[in-house]
Computed example of a mutant assay.
Amino acid sequence: MELRHLRYFCAVAEDGHVTRAAERLHVSQSALTQQIKALEDELGTALLRRVGRGIELTEAGAVFWHEAQSILDRVPIATFAAQEAARGLTGRLAIGMTETVSFASQLTLVMREARERWPRVEFSLIQARSNDLVLALEERLIDVALMRAPAPTTEKLRSWPFLSEGLVGAIPDTHLLATRQAITLADLTDEPLVLPHGRSGPGAMRTRIATAFARLGATAKIAQETPEYVMAINLAAAGFGIALVPAVLSGVRRDGVVYCPLAEPDLLTEIIVVARAGDPAPVLGNFVALCLEHDATKAPGAGTKAS
C-alpha cells in the first residue's frame, strides 16, 4: 500500500464518481479503477459500491476513508518535521561539561544563543569529570562534551578548540601579594602553592607549571595538591598557600581569597569541544559550529578562542 492508493481512494470517495476523480487526479479512468481494485484486494474487503451512476462508500470504506484522510492530512506535517530535523532545528542534544568549564562566561553566551536559534531543540546538560564525559560519549549517553585539554586519544572521538585562558592566583587576602594587580611565577618561587594534580598522574597543567618553574631555575613549593580546582580555592582560603587556577574561576567567591592574574602568557589552559567522530546528527553539527564561530572576546575575562 502506498500513499497514492490512499489519495486515489479518497478522491473517488469525495467525488462519488470515478470519472471526475480521474480527471482531477490527471490519470485515466481505467488506471484509477485498477488502483482502487488493488487496494480492495490488499485489504480483503470492498470499499466502494456503485449506486446508479455514482459510487458510495461501504461501511468498511467509510471507516477506511476517515483513517486514510487523517494519514494524508499528516503527510505535510511529517514532511515539514523531517526537513526541520534534517536542518537541526528540532531534536535533542545532551551536553556534558566539567565543573570548571561550566563557569566560563563564553559557554553561557553559546548556550543562550543556541536556545535563541533553535527554540525547539531540547537541550540537557550534565556535569562530570573529563574521564566520565569521555565514557559517556563513547556509550552515547551524551552527544557532546566541553572539557579541558588535552583531547582524548581515542579515534572514536573528535575534538575542536573552543577557547583558551590564562591562570589566576587565588591568594589569601592577608598575603602581601593580595594587593598586586598581577603576579608572575618569579613572585611565587618561595611561596607555598596549591597545585592541580590529575587522578592518575600530575596532569597536563601541573606538568606545564613545573616546566615553567624549571625555566626560572626554581622548583614549585607544593603545599597541597588536589584534582579539583574549586577545592584548591578553598584550600587557599584556609591559608594553605596560593592556588593557581583557570581564570574563569575568579568568579567563584570565597571569603578570605582574592584573585590576581598570572602574567605568564605561555601558561594557558584550553577548553575543547569533543564529540563522536563521524556523528551525522544535524543538531550536533549546528552546536559545534556555533561553538567554533563564537568570538571569545565577547565574554569579558573569558580569554581568547584557541586557534
Rank of each mutant, 00 (worst) to 15 (best):
T174P: 03
A214S: 15
G285V: 02
V75R: 07
K221S: 12
E99P: 07
A275H: 11
R24C: 06
P246A: 05
G239K: 05
L48T: 02
L72N: 06
A182I: 04
F240G: 09
F162Q: 04
A243V: 02
L3D: 12
L141N: 08
D41Y: 03
H294S: 12
A149I: 04
A289E: 04
A214M: 15
L72K: 05
T189C: 04
G239E: 04
S30C: 10
L193W: 02
A170G: 06
Q29G: 11
R199L: 14
K221N: 10
A238D: 02
A186K: 11
P76T: 11
A236K: 03
I77H: 09
T154R: 08
K305Y: 03
V245I: 10
H294L: 14
S250V: 09
R158I: 14
A186P: 08
A78W: 13
A237C: 04
L216G: 10
S307L: 12
G61T: 07
V274L: 01
A94K: 12
M1H: 12
G54M: 07
A82M: 15
L109M: 08
P150R: 00
A214T: 15
L176S: 15
G16H: 07
L6N: 10
A136D: 03
V258S: 04
A263N: 06
T19L: 10
V257W: 02
P172L: 06
A22V: 13
A170W: 04
I126C: 08
A178C: 06
I71F: 08
A277D: 07
V248I: 06
R74N: 13
I71R: 09
T226E: 13
V283C: 01
E293N: 12
R206W: 10
D295N: 00
L125S: 01
E293H: 10
F213T: 09
